[in-house]
């Protein structure tokens, strides 16, 4: 019995990379899901049944992470020793925190304002969405660059970008909530 793939990329038979062909990945996901569906192993040995179960579970995790560019980037950073979640060893830059803090303050003031604040929140949301869109374009460019050069410096830039995007994503969510 072979052992399980070493990482999420290996589940799909690819080497760790960031600029993925999502439609192709999805196709592979369906193929593998079918191939390893536990129902197909009902008459197999106990070890094979267990493998099908473990593989399917790993496949689902891998698909969930790799389909999402943010999660995919964070996963690859982590497997390269960049602890995206460790804000202690690499605190976010203070300019970013100041900016996010100010944006949050403005949003909160608007939210507690009267009905006229709606327009202001809507335009703040427009701004956040534009920021997110710009970050997404930068992220995709970094993905391509990393796949080509495999340089730690590119990963450092990616980590900074993904951290920033998480904050912007929260602001988008908060603004949308305030408007709903």
């Amino acid at each position: 019995m072979s052992s399980l793939p070493a990482d999420y990329f290996a589940v799909f038979g690819i080497s760790p990379s960031l600029a993925l062909d999502l439609p192709e990945l999805q196709r592979q996901f369906y193929v593998l899901s079918k191939q390893f569906h536990p129902d197909r192993f009902a008459r197999a040995s106990a070890a094979e049944q267990q493998y099908a179960l473990d593989f399917t579970s790993l496949l689902n995790d891998a698909w969930r992470v790799l389909r999402d560019p943010q999660a995919r980037g964070e996963y690859l950073l982590k497997s390269n020793g960049f602890e995206a979640g460790d804000s202690r060893s690499n605190p976010p830059p203070s300019e970013l925190l100041e900016e996010v803090f100010e944006l949050n303050m403005a949003l909160e003031e608007l939210r507690h304002g009267d009905g006229e604040a709606r327009g202001a929140i809507a335009s703040a949301l427009e701004r956040f969405l534009a920021m997110r869109e710009a970050l997404d374009a930068d992220r995709d460019a970094l993905f391509v660059r990393y796949d080509a050069n495999r340089e730690p410096e590119t990963l450092r830039q990616l980590r900074a970008l993904l951290n920033r995007r998480r904050y912007i994503e929260n602001l988008v969510r908060d603004a949308q909530q305030a408007l709903s």
Partner: peptide
Amino acid sequence: GMVGAPECGDVMK
């Protein structure tokens, strides 16, 4: 002191 945790989007002053 201004600190933050990007993983959850928190910012604390």
